[in-house]
Design a protein around this nucleic acid. Structure first.
Ligand SMILES: [Mn+2]
Ligand SMILES: [Mn+2]
Ligand SMILES: [Zn+2]
Ligand SMILES: [Zn+2]
Lengths: 120, 120
DNA sequence: ATAAATATGCGAATGAGTTGCATATGCAGT
DNA sequence: ACTGCATATGCAACTCATTCGCATATTTAT
């Protein structure tokens, strides 16, 4: 456990907005001003492999991250603002498993993003 | 309408496997042996903007394409083989719209991929 | 056929992410 | 606290998909 890794972990804990590696680098600098970009990338890869972090691609070119601990959820992206809203739906989870089964597969993973604009 | 574009369109029509730009380049060479990589990229971007083609990211580094004409569907990726299976589920479509509405949004787009391994 | 508009090929540029390597740091074991 | 080794870091160079500039070729409109 190094200074750099502690800094990144703290930056991630303080973030509620699914930050990308650049954002994490900036935020981690507050705790370790000398931290390098490459260290952020390396650490995020490690954390993802350890299952401590989830990596998402919301289609903006950069991967975005969040802690893996929270309860399972999917994302809705507000196309007007870029804001990411989390949601969980039990029926949806069940349906995904059911559809995979119907096709002859055991569901191992999935990726679901909804893109919408505010109603009205 | 140019020779290159016709070649790419034919390559795409002949493909049932959600090809990436490299695959399309290879396949288009059969109809236009001098076609350049850059032309494939430019043409796919154009076709996507025109709504004639759908671009997918199945997490393999390269974007993959398919004609947009066919009926709306989502994808299940066989993790054992990489094979892409298409499916359509009315309940799922309705549920996605319903969830967005519940969150206060009109659903404009979505991305759903299931990753699974063959049952048993 | 001619000219203006567009598309192409090529190679260079971009940008996120990775990696080699020399140095620095963390962590035993003393 | 001191030493030694394993591991992590910073930096710069690299990779790889995709984009872009530009001179030339192809299309399309006249
Ligand atoms: Mn989910
Ligand atoms: Mn769908
Ligand atoms: Zn989330
Ligand atoms: Zn498809």
């Amino acid at each position: 456990m190094t200074t750099a890794r502690r800094a990144i972990l703290k930056a991630l804990e303080n973030s509620e907005d699914h930050p990308d590696a650049l954002m994490l680098h900036d935020r981690a600098k507050e705790f370790d001003p000398t931290i390098a970009q490459a260290t952020v990338y390396r650490t995020m890869r490690l954390l993802e492999q350890e299952g401590l972090v989830e990596k998402h691609d919301f289609g903006n070119g950069r991967a975005r991250y969040e802690e893996a601990e929270k309860e399972q959820h999917d994302h809705l992206i507000n196309l007007s603002t870029g804001e990411i809203i989390e949601f969980h739906d039990t029926d949806l989870e069940a349906l995904k498993i059911e559809i995979a089964k119907r096709l002859g597969f055991d569901l191992k993973d999935h990726r679901l993003e909804l893109y919408g604009v505010p109603k009205e």
